[in-house]
């Protein structure tokens, strides 16, 4: 996986001659080394899981559990990678996800879906997510409100709207075409894991192979330079936040499929897990560098961690402490990298 990411920028991550020469002997770029470090951390976690959980950890069934767990967070993390690469943040993704699950599972939506098929529910979730993201984008790009505040407001407002619509009740999904399309396995792998895989691959191409991705990096690396190069920075930010909202909608569909229920409490505090995974993955919070591969591994690390703790019946409070420690350690390492590359 890490091999795939290198062709995009063999020299980009080798700012100093010294590092370049020492690495080129091994044929590795900075991005590869960072991703290898993440893979090593993931393998270490798996080793711990195997030693403590034995076959309960190392089984295909458990692997699928971990992947399912990672999928919902993972899809949003792909969108968040773009947002953070521009130097922004989106705190609203968790509550937007909650809103999309509620809106897509109301009695009215499900009744319409009975008539026209699952596309109604999916379309509803995607549109609601996209709309929330575009509203964020307009406020941030054209209203010049800092992303933190704009998306914090959306976090509160979307949760409120979800409560209003659901009337604080859990809405059970019993729409047959939706269930048959999104629940269960395909080729032995849960369908929501397939969705995550598709979104991740699409996200990788979008970031590394398209003008959209290049603009995202440019806006995050130096917004003024991007503007003076002729890039419409405001419009691009609008698109990026729209994309983040859209991924929240996709994740909403996946959560509906996994839990079979729409609720205004869905996705509570999910934004924290998402941001943690993206940052641990190596995307710079200040913008200008983003990595989809890193984000995917970051998501897997946290999902595996949770799984190892559950298998060993360890208190979830302890797990929170471990998560905090991992985030701090990852950011400290990142800063060391950033310092070395600018010196």
């Amino acid at each position: 996986m890490s091999e795939q990411q290198t062709p995009s920028s063999p020299a980009a991550d080798n700012p100093t001659k010294h590092r370049e020469s020492s690495r080129s002997r091994l044929g590795l770029s900075g991005a590869t080394v960072r991703n290898l470090g993440l893979v090593a951390a993931l393998l270490l976690l798996c080793l711990v899981g195997f030693l403590t959980g034995g076959d309960r950890f190392a089984s295909v069934q458990n692997l699928m559990i971990v992947l399912s767990l990672a999928s919902v967070t993972g899809v949003i993390a792909i969108g968040m990678t773009f947002v953070i690469t521009t130097g922004g943040i989106d705190l609203s993704v968790g509550s937007v996800l909650g809103l999309t699950t509620v809106w897509a599972s109301t009695l009215a939506t499900q009744t319409m879906a009975d008539q026209y098929g699952w596309i109604v529910m999916v379309g509803c979730a995607l549109l609601v997510g996209l709309a929330a993201g575009l509203i964020n984008g307009v406020i941030i790009a054209y209203g010049n409100v800092v992303a933190f505040i704009a998306t914090l407001s959306m976090l509160v407002a979307a949760r409120g709207l979800a409560e209003l619509i659901a009337n604080r009740r859990t809405q059970i999904v019993n729409q047959s075409s939706f269930e048959s399309t999104f629940q269960g396995d395909l080729l032995g792998v849960p369908k929501i894991v397939w969705i995550f895989a598709i979104v991740a691959v699409a996200g990788w191409f979008l970031l590394n192979r398209t003008t959209f991705g290049r603009r995202t990096v440019a806006v995050g690396g130096n917004a003024e330079a991007a503007r003076l190069a002729g890039i419409n920075v405001k419009r691009h930010l609008l698109y990026v936040y729209g994309l983040a909202g859209l991924t929240a909608g996709v994740a909403g569909v996946m959560l509906l499929a996994r839990t079979g229920a729409g609720s205004s409490t869905n996705g509570l505090l999910l934004e924290l897990d998402v941001i943690a995974a993206v940052v641990v993955g190596g995307t710079l919070l200040v913008g200008g560098r983003g990595t989809i591969v890193g984000t995917v591994i970051g998501v897997l690390i946290f999902a595996t961690l949770t799984n190892v703790f559950i298998i060993n019946n360890i208190d979830s409070s302890v797990q929170q402490i471990a998560r905090g420690a991992i985030i701090v350690a990852a950011v400290l390492l990142q800063q060391r990298f950033a310092r070395r590359s600018t010196s």
């Binding site: 980009a12 440019a218 130096n222 003024e224 330079a225 200008g288 560098r289």
Partner: peptide, 8 residues
């Protein structure tokens, strides 16, 4: 500050 993406 206005022209280049220095790390690219």
């Amino acid at each position: 500050s206005q022209g280049l993406l220095l790390d690219e």
